[in-house]
């Protein structure tokens, strides 16, 4: 890292702005969770806010906004496989071939009465 003390001092203001933004977004995500946009809508809103927060942390606190090519290379690989993983349940989930799960039948005490005759 080649940053001088003066540059770091400048960054601190950015860190504080991001910190306030993260707090605000946390409040926002909690507030909107009480509004009903439908299941898909609520999931979308919550994940979009979480992604914005995560991007802020990664870009500013983790300095990804100005990193070396090597890290971007490694992370794009991770991102690709991560997205692939997220799609696995969607690809596997197929109602047409799905067998319904039935809870196991309760164990009933059975008395063998065969020999009592």
């Amino acid at each position: 890292m080649a940053e001088s003390a003066a540059e770091v001092q400048k960054h601190i203001r950015t860190y504080l702005v991001v910190f306030v933004a993260l707090g605000g977004l946390t409040a926002l995500t909690v507030a909107v969770s009480f509004i009903h946009f439908g299941t898909a809508g609520n999931i979308a809103v919550a994940l979009i806010i979480a992604s914005v927060k995560a991007s802020l942390v990664a870009a500013v606190f983790m300095h990804l906004i100005s990193e070396k090519q090597f890290i971007y290379g490694v992370l794009s690989l991770s991102a690709f496989f991560f997205l692939l993983l997220m799609f696995v349940p969607v690809l596997v989930h197929d109602d047409s071939t799905r067998t319904k799960w039935h809870p196991p039948a309760p164990i009933v005490e059975t008395h063998t009465v065969d020999h009592v005759s």
Partner: peptide, 15 residues
């Protein structure tokens, strides 16, 4: 670790 929690929180508490 903070970033992971940013996703865990809505997934378990809000959705």
């Amino acid at each position: 670790v903070d970033l992971v929690w940013i996703f865990l929180f809505p997934v378990f508490y809000l959705l």
